[in-house]
Design a protein around this nucleic acid. Structure first.
Lengths: 250, 250
DNA sequence: GACGTCATGTGGTCATTACCAGTTAGTATA
DNA sequence: TATACTAACTGGTAATGACCACATGACGTC
């Protein structure tokens, strides 16, 4: 990996610069709460204009690597804030980041009629639109961590088979390859519920144990929803992390 | 409220423009998934440069009001995504947004020694640093919703009295006025726990009922943590909302 | 010593200009 | 008719120059 910006590269200069600065932070060249070189100092260092430098820094500020103070400088954020922030992750990615091996037991793959809740969340108006339901037990290092029930809104007439889901561990990569649907944003709610007998059995816990229920609506590139997922996590095994930001503007 | 940008106003033009565009969306002048005027069309309409227009649109895109498609245009996001997104709110604000009247019962205000967990979360290195503990039952429309225990890291030697907390419903406004500490970001974890006898009594629920435990570290302007809060919510009354974004860059 | 002033450095805002890269629809061509 | 091209849009990237607002430390004054 280079520390020099290549003007002929297809990736924009400000992305290249952001990657270079990020590496300096990750590798500890710049310490927490210390200022990085000023924007005007960076200009000759990388032969780019201040506008480009500001775009690069904007990226890193939004991702939580740097923070600015008007009149003082741009500083390195505390390490602990820098990883896995505010990111939309699949169950697989989530498990991997916790250092566990993700696995799944497929219970059902089928075409179903949408309920009112699903019609509303997936913005369905047509009366003929069907959904593809995928019901799975998700495991981490072999032990059941949660029950995930996905309802997918596929392009007209399309569907998925149980085999496709089995081979491809992550539905998101499948959706991306087959239908060009890439998750970009999601609304998510969390609440506490008590395990039904069936759920308790699947998760190998006592009946009426507390569970963490998350309901997620996932949106693709053009902000259209394509997935509604319910995940029931074991309350004794799962901890949820979020990062909140106060929008200062206005 | 005006639809014209005032160049002499202290608030930046791009903020003024963002407010104008936001109003057009809120008031329904521009419909969901329809394009707004192109950046070059907006230039003469508001007498600002394209750079400024892009800054304004950037704001609204980041806040979820608009989305862009390269080569096609800038479009209005679906309504339902637009409110209360990704914002860091106090309990009071949170209750108000749910249409309930926030209240509190103060249990304790005291100076305490930090535990190891608190020292780590609040980045405390000094051995003499004390914390101010505020223990409260928070209510919505009079019924107990949660137990909130805050540990505040105040400037050397400073402290708060029970009276100050009683008068000022929101600690955040108190912190802002007295110490110029403004919450800008927070890390938050959520998990399920079971109510202890004391907690069950305070919340008026059965012993061992499931609760939603959130632990939050709040950061001020310069990214220094100043508050560590534990909140126990009644599992049967509380639903948590989050918005996730996949960071596309790189 | 305490206080105010001011030069200088920082990030914040804005205009202007140029060109690149996708998208779309009309048009010429096979 | 079907295909390929092209012009005219869209947003994306980049450089440059200017000025503003805030923070800080050096310096002079009281």
């Amino acid at each position: 990996m280079s520390s020099i910006i290549n003007p002929f590269n297809v990736v924009p200069k400000y992305h290249q610069l952001a990657a270079i600065l990020k590496r300096k932070i990750d590798e500890g060249d710049w310490k927490t709460h210390t200022p990085i070189p000023s924007e005007r100092q960076l200009e000759p260092l990388y032969n780019v204009s201040r506008a480009t430098i500001r775009q690069a820094i904007d990226l890193l500020v939004r991702q939580g690597y740097l923070y600015r103070e008007h009149g003082r400088g741009t500083f390195v954020s505390p390490q602990k804030l820098q990883k896995g922030i505010q990111e939309l992750t699949s169950f697989s990615e989530d498990m991997l980041s916790r250092g566990m091996k993700p696995g799944q037991i497929i219970l059902e793959v089928a075409e179903v009629e949408p309920t009112d809740q699903m019609r509303q969340r997936l913005e369905i108006t047509s009366n003929t639109q069907k959904l593809t339901k995928i019901d799975r037990v998700r495991t981490g290092d072999g032990t059941p961590m949660g029950i995930q029930t996905s309802y997918l809104l596929l392009p007209q007439g399309q569907s998925l088979t149980r085999e496709e889901v089995e081979v491809n561990g992550s539905i998101y990569s499948l959706m991306s390859e087959k239908f060009h649907l890439i998750p970009t944003e999601a609304d998510e709610t969390l609440e506490v519920v008590l395990a039904t007998p069936r759920e308790a059995e699947l998760l190998d816990i006592a009946e009426s144990s507390p569970l963490l229920l998350t309901e997620r609506t996932t949106y693709s590139q053009n902000r259209r929803p394509f997935e509604f997922v319910k995940i029931l996590y074991r309350g004794d095994r799962y901890k949820y992390f979020a990062r909140l930001t106060r929008l200062i503007s206005q």
